[in-house]
């Protein structure tokens, strides 16, 4: 197998498909990042919440909280945090491909959520594109939520104490004090996850999303070339991911500069 200029010339006859595929990948990643990040924020806050509906069971008759024993453990049970933890663990412990197929073949099937066969944003097939975005977002939300949770926990406990001592509520403390500092701490990890999303979006070609990867398939089928279309697509993914990580590194440097003024 060899690479030839003629092979590339043939491949470039499919330039329009590659262009549309690239746009599709960008849209996929963009919506996934937004949806996934929102989901992750919700999951992280759920996991760190202190909603304890059974706390009354852990009360002593004079109104103090028990510290030990079965009732104390029952009183500490937090269903919101439990649900989020189960979600994160299940998503992280099952293959992305399985999740994608469950979303596409079950959740968005004819009898559950029947999507109309329309095109959106010019050329995207909604009934393929939307399940792709949803599956990717559900998956990356679980990973991102672990990153955000770590970021929230990395903020010094004294910050919370100072904020609460001023009379700010738990929610206000999270919004104005903890999250701004947490985001700064985890920006590199979030950047990595965004890059991962761009690369992982390739998997959606298995459900017929016409992204970059499906352009490769078309070019390979049409030209009988194997390597050239793959090289082209690898270069195109690189062109998406490399600038993304550079842009995030730039923001990271800018935020750190603020520290050292």
């Amino acid at each position: 197998m060899s690479v030839s200029a003629a092979g590339f010339a043939k491949t470039f006859q499919y330039a329009d498909m590659f262009k549309e595929g690239m746009l599709c990948t960008v849209y996929l990643s963009f919506f996934t990042v937004i949806l996934g990040f929102l989901l992750a924020l919700v999951l992280a806050v759920m996991r760190l919440s202190n909603f304890q509906p059974l706390r009354f069971l852990a009360m002593t008759p004079d109104g103090h909280l028990r510290e030990e024993g079965f009732l104390a453990a029952v009183g500490r049970f937090n269903p919101i945090s439990f649900i989020a933890t189960v979600y994160v663990e299940v998503v992280r412990a099952t293959p992305m491909l399985v999740q994608l197929f469950i979303v596409y073949q079950v959740v968005f099937s004819k009898n559950v959520i029947d999507l109309p066969s329309v095109t959106v944003l010019g050329f995207l097939k909604l009934n393929r594109f939307l399940p792709g975005v949803v599956a990717l977002a559900l998956n990356s939300g679980a990973y991102l939520s672990e990153i955000i949770r770590a970021g929230i926990q990395s903020v010094d406990g004294g910050q919370t104490e100072a904020s609460r001592s001023l009379g700010l509520t738990q929610g206000q403390t999270m919004l104005y004090i903890i999250l701004p500092q947490a985001i700064k701490n985890i920006l590199p990890a979030i950047g990595n996850e965004f890059v991962t999303i761009i690369k992982e979006s390739a998997i959606t070609y298995t459900i017929g999303v016409q992204d970059l990867m499906s352009a490769v398939k078309a070019a390979q089928a049409g030209t009988f070339l194997v390597l050239e279309p793959l090289l082209v697509v690898a270069a195109m993914y690189f062109c998406l991911t490399f600038p993304t990580s550079k842009v995030i590194a730039y923001f990271e440097r800018r935020m750190r500069r603020g520290d050292q003024r």
């Binding site: 010094d156 004294g158 910050q159 104490e161 100072a162 904020s163 609460r164 001592s165 001023l166 009379g167 700010l168 509520t169 004090i177 701004p180 500092q181 700064k184 603020g258 520290d259």
Partner: peptide, 20 residues
């Protein structure tokens, strides 16, 4: 408790100013 904490100012050993 937030209502009561508003009426008690607290100063910490490590200042705990908000760095951002």
């Amino acid at each position: 408790i937030d209502k009561h904490r508003q009426k008690m100012g607290m100063v910490f050993q490590h200042f705990n100013l908000f760095p951002h």
